[in-house]
Design a protein around this nucleic acid. Structure first.
Lengths: 306, 306
DNA sequence: TTTTTCATTTCAACAGTTGAAACCAGATTT
DNA sequence: AAATCTGGTTTCAACTGTTGAAATGAAAAA
């Protein structure tokens, strides 16, 4: 998944569980007695012409070079409609046409439709339901985070109810080498990416990056993570952030091609030991990671037809 | 300008001058007697609803987090229309809404509208008219090329008429350190990018990359280019490709923020010496480069209104 | 409590969107 | 050479999809 823009700071909590102490229940998007979120109801039917225009643009994106015929086959739309959409997209500057042949391709202006996409907002939105279920299943909070420049950025969290000790909001940047999230990501990502990250961290000041400047120790740790199947929060990090009362284990969220993100479980040492925690929760954690990997792998939708 | 995808191999020559030997004049897009290209005439008026949907999407991209109000102010569209567009974009998966507040942001699916954009196709299309004019002005052919991974990829060329010796099509990949295009790009691009490119080239087999493995010589050459204001084709490259009969000078196409591409002029040694060529053509070349930089800097369009 | 601001919903006017069909042009087949 | 096929372009009337003024709803501010 290409990383186009860095995370931004403005707070946004898509489809997040409503804090029960904040205000009276909303009319729309309201929780019922069993704490399930109601799906919001649209006011309008989708605008068919808009959906079709977008679909034609998406197929051109897929095909790279498109003709009226290829678009007709891909979308099922009438040829006159396709030409109309193409001319509209051309007029708006998103598509160009070869002067000699009736072939079409994207222009750089399409970047203006996607460049501002903040990955962590979207991923947070997608994983929220699964994360909420997972919290209910295991009784401990989790984060999902993705790598961004020199940190793991928390995209979604199920920490909101429960102990204040765990209080973190989406957008929080966690150190790669201090957290189970970052360590899990690093241990499993592609070799080239891993080398690049380590190189970046080695140049970045801060004691959490010390191990990046000690390749042997780091390499050994990453190997251990891969052998065990999970990563653990750094003991010093736990001491510094939680006075040593919290531990966490994390695993990567990965599909066939790449590591997309990582997920952890955070627990109190006083309630559950690392040994017990791993025994009880590693499998559910890995299962949930696999499910999330599926959800986060972008696939085209069905064609827009009337 | 972000580099999202590598160049693809399929030949595409947008808005290119029609080869006069190929077939009878076309009914549309036909050249008149003075060799000017007629602008192709659309069959339909643009679909207003589609244009509006795209405009709303573009503004969300710009704002990162949008409300009905902010979109109303930015686009001038009626609030009911904006909600309708938002719900359509949400239904199609390109936009998500926060459950608590009426705020909207892009999803990762917008990448499916731009990911397949091939930069060199678009740049080739934009620069073609200017390049054709420039060819008429100076009498010698030019290329515009951009950096891509480990080479300069030719996006557009005015070599088609004239000597077969110059025959190159868009999509051709030229060695960075062998050509005036590559050298000009390298000499002027940002320090970090330059270091990255040199590092990549140093690791890449091939004798054109030898100088990347000799940092002192390379650094000296780049400094000389910056002092002179132009780069020259490597003498060995000229010998190998053109039997030493051709020389070229190149300059960067750059705006305030970055180097976007580069442009050259190719000349026969037998017809014009380097000294004369520089004296006569450096200024027009630099002027044209500045013009192209403007054309290649993406700016938003006017809002879509009825 | 009242006012303001922003978001949501209704509903009928009307013109924008649509696709069947005709047309065009080049390539291929007979 | 003529007929057929293929893909792109254009016409035109049916009809319903899109629109925005206005009303409504909800929360925030005065």
């Amino acid at each position: 998944m290409p990383r186009i823009v860095p995370a931004r700071t403005k707070s946004f909590s898509p489809k997040r569980a409503m804090p029960l102490v904040r205000r009276d229940p909303l009319q729309r998007g309201q929780r019922n007695a069993t704490n399930e979120v109601k799906v919001s109801v649209p006011s309008f039917k989708p605008v068919v012409a808009v959906a079709r225009g977008l679909e034609v643009l998406r197929v051109i994106n897929e095909e790279r070079i498109s003709t009226v015929r290829s678009l007709n086959k891909a979308t099922g739309l009438d040829k006159a409609t396709i030409v109309r959409m193409l001319e509209t997209l051309e007029h708006e500057g998103y598509v160009m046409r070869d002067a000699e042949r009736a072939v079409y391709a994207l222009t750089g202006r399409t970047l203006l439709l996607s460049q501002g996409y903040d990955q962590h907002l979207w991923i947070g939105s997608v994983v929220e339901p699964t994360l909420r279920k997972f919290r209910k299943e295991i009784g401990w909070p989790s984060d999902v985070a993705l790598f961004d420049q020199d940190a793991m950025i928390v995209a979604q969290t199920s920490r909101e109810s429960g102990l204040l000790l765990f209080n973190r909001t989406p957008g929080f940047r966690a150190p790669v080498l201090g957290t189970s999230l970052g360590r899990a990501y690093l241990a499993y990502c592609a070799e080239q990416e891993q080398a690049q990250i380590i190189e970046t961290l080695a140049k970045t000041p801060g004691h959490w990056n010390d191990m990046a400047r000690n390749p042997k120790r780091l390499s050994k740790m990453l190997q251990e993570i891969r052998e065990r199947g999970y990563a653990l929060m750094d003991a010093d990090y736990s001491r510094e952030e939680y006075e040593g009362t919290v531990w966490a284990m994390g695993v990567p969220i990965k599909n066939d091609k790449q590591v997309l993100a990582s997920i952890n479980i955070m627990m109190l040492r006083s309630a559950i030991s690392q040994e017990d925690g791993v025994k009880r929760f590693l499998l559910p954690l890995q299962r949930t990671a696999a499910m999330l990997a599926k959800q986060l792998t972008i696939k085209p939708r069905a064609a827009a037809r009337g």
